[in-house]
Design a binder for these strands. Structure first.
Length: 200
DNA sequence: CCAAAGATCTACT
DNA sequence: GTAGATCTTTGGG
């Protein structure tokens, strides 16, 4: 079935519910110029962050210039720069005023693998696992930067879109989130069970 | 103004 | 397994 963009209503639920439902969906990156090819990946690993009552969330200490997108409408991109080198992509969820979000952590490459490899400075025949398995890697593979912060991911005419292609429901594992200091014991990282393109 | 931490990745031992 | 790269954001003086 042809990919259908997700609707804002998809993101109105709590972050853990949205996270589970995002597994198996497509992240579509339109080319920057007409001669380029789209880059498409299937979401296989995500983490849920609750705006309040979640010490690990960027929005835990309240609204700032950096995290303002999280407090806005659902289905929008929150892109931040970390460790001086990497970008990470989140999707805002819950109604406006609530700062829940989902971090996209790994993609299974579906289309545009050569473009992904080039953006990642890898050989054209590099193992596809190296393309987008990890939050920093997938942003590099899809050329996602702070320029995309605040973008509506439900609008198919924009360069970055989330879509459903009818991929069937799969068993899901829930494990602790990666790389955080606080609340590291909560099982809020969700993965497609046994998928070879997970980040760890 | 300055300092410190950070939802990472890669290379090297 | 450990270290280094590299810079934005934030909070305190």
């Amino acid at each position: 079935m042809p990919p259908t963009p997700l609707t804002p209503g998809f993101f109105l639920r709590k972050p853990d519910r949205v996270a589970r439902h995002l597994l198996g969906k497509l992240l579509i990156r339109q080319p920057n110029n007409p001669s380029g090819e789209p880059a498409i990946g299937r979401i296989v690993e995500v983490e849920a962050y609750f705006g309040s009552n979640d010490p690990a969330a960027h929005a835990f200490a309240g609204k700032t210039a950096r995290n303002a997108v999280l407090f806005g409408p659902p289905g929008h991109a929150y892109v931040y720069f970390i460790y001086g080198m990497h970008y990470c992509l989140n999707v805002s969820c819950e109604p406006e005023g609530h700062a829940g979000c989902v971090l996209i952590r790994a993609l299974e490459p579906i289309a545009g693998l050569a473009t992904m490899a080039r953006r990642r400075n890898l050989a054209a025949n590099a193992h596809p696992r190296l393309l987008a398995s990890g939050p920093g890697r997938l942003c590099q593979a899809l050329a996602i930067t702070r320029a995309h912060n605040g973008l509506d991911l439900t609008e198919p005419s924009y360069p970055l879109t989330l879509a459903d292609d009818g991929f069937p429901t799969q068993p899901i594992d829930a494990t602790p989130r990666i790389g955080i200091r606080h609340a590291a014991d909560r099982p809020l990282r969700f993965t497609l069970r046994g998928n070879p393109f997970l980040s760890k």
